[in-house]
Nucleic acid binder design. Sequence first.
DNA 1: CTGAAAGCGCTTACAG
DNA 2: CTGAAAGCGCTTACAG
Lengths: 340, 340
Amino acid sequence: MATIGDVARVAGVSRSTVSHALSGKRSISTETKARIAAAIESLGYTANAGARALATSRSNIIGLMVPFIPEEFEPATMQYVLTVAHTAREHGYDVLMVTDREGVGGIDRITGSNLVDGVMVLDVRRHDSRIDHLRRAGSPAVLIGVPSDEPLIDTVDLDFEAAARSLIDHLADLGHRRVLFMTLPEVLFAQDLGYAWRFYDSALTHARSRGIALIPFAVSSEPNQVGHELDSALAEHPSATALLIHNDGALVDLPVALEARGISTPEDLSVVSIFPDQFGRMFRVPYTAVETSAAAVAERAVRMLVARIEDRDGPARLELLAPILVDRGSSGPISGRKSG
Amino acid sequence: MATIGDVARVAGVSRSTVSHALSGKRSISTETKARIAAAIESLGYTANAGARALATSRSNIIGLMVPFIPEEFEPATMQYVLTVAHTAREHGYDVLMVTDREGVGGIDRITGSNLVDGVMVLDVRRHDSRIDHLRRAGSPAVLIGVPSDEPLIDTVDLDFEAAARSLIDHLADLGHRRVLFMTLPEVLFAQDLGYAWRFYDSALTHARSRGIALIPFAVSSEPNQVGHELDSALAEHPSATALLIHNDGALVDLPVALEARGISTPEDLSVVSIFPDQFGRMFRVPYTAVETSAAAVAERAVRMLVARIEDRDGPARLELLAPILVDRGSSGPISGRKSG
DNA sequence: CTGAAAGCGCTTACAG
DNA sequence: CTGAAAGCGCTTACAG
């Protein structure tokens, strides 16, 4: 593999001149520049990443901590990962993917060794031990997901609390007073996932203030659980007139489950939801919903991290993306189910 | 950040002794070892990755080229990515994720700079320009997916040809002679994806040799296309008695589409398929099928790559995982549709 | 069992 | 506009 010394020799200049030609950090005569470019071309030279990292204390790599949560619906995660990778490249960074499997050790490893210039954490918990390690490491970092504690690290996410409020308002304005609430699998709450709890808590609180009785029931991630859970919920609460759903996996089967039960939307039951926009491109989800954009969040997160790497000072930022409600006509004024 | 010099000073030994204690490459007295360990602990020392890479010409990172194919069903891809990351860590490697967006430049960049010790390529095309770049770079590499050309690079994949044959045999043995074949979206064939073509070609060839008329029709990845395409196919070929499916996206909607048309499986129509095993854990797919395991393929791929990094000599290996047919009772002896 | 020293391939003050 | 040299933090022959 050619080194900068080889390039220098072929071009008939010093190594420092080659280095400066590469970085553009000082002006080089056009003629010299051309000779260097030719040498680089003919030798197929690419700067050694390790040497450059050692000399500059910059690897141009960002670490991405991805969750390993078997219960979680994966298409959305993939969307985050791909967008992070794309956006990072646009800023000159590569992405090192580290899974949660190692636990917190992964963070210590990649920050302690200076392997990465910054770290991005997906699926942040309300109390997330990774935050401590990040702070102790002193590494630039961005959280995707909002923890409970005071925000000491840059954070981006959809505003799940505003999303819950807007969906509740939507139903309240239509006159609904008893609403079933299909939540994420309990395992995810047990994992203390920020977005799960924030949506949940906020929905319950806001429903109370709007005079809505909100009745939560969880649906696990096994295929085909929707029907059973729905039957119990409907049987126990025959007077419910609407259904609020925060459960990607269950959403796929819901249209069928409702149809099989002869329940029309919105005539018999108003249905509103929240799910990743990209999800709607894959499946038939004919419901009025807040569409979350993994791509938008990931893009913002990369920009924040890059900004933080380039300027480590300044207070932590919290950026919450405003929810967008897409009306698909699956909700209507209160009416009452045929069976009710 | 503490350096190896700091550790040496605190432990009262030379830097080379610390280095050897870390690598275990020569024996160190128990007492010295303990002092070094204590120093490392108290300083929170982690070796600088760039310096180590520069000194050893090894980064302990493998590059993973992931496809950016919007039409492709993502859950399976995520499974590959996660398993690669896990398995790599077990072998002491981190994973740098590079997307196809940069095209072939990504390969040149990460190999040329010695950023990675080896490269793994997902979604290999029949004629894949990345193979040339890999060979020219001389970097250890493993393909996931089988190209058309002579195998010059280690390759792993499910044996899609054997899978097609076993599904065709299964139907032929049951007496079916006219079989509809729901294929992947045309875009994926246009992308020249190896697994798409290998399954397709092999199914057609083997069907002919078994006296089956196999009638292919593609279904795009937009939600809800299955019904329409199925209607046309059934109308055009009323005498077809079975359906072979290679299309993950379409599979989700198929049970509903069939039910809506009053078609029972296997009474009216035998249905067999091929899909990722993990897919069956997310959705209801009640069909006899070859279950592909992204995890198994990814694991093998990492092992091959690690072996190749540690020993660059020896001929390229081709490893095809044998298909496993899971019988779910969705196929039966030929009978003829009600409507037929 | 341990140490002194060279070297990996860059970047960047410093000097001209 | 250009060069000589020091230094980044490791590893590894070489020597004892």
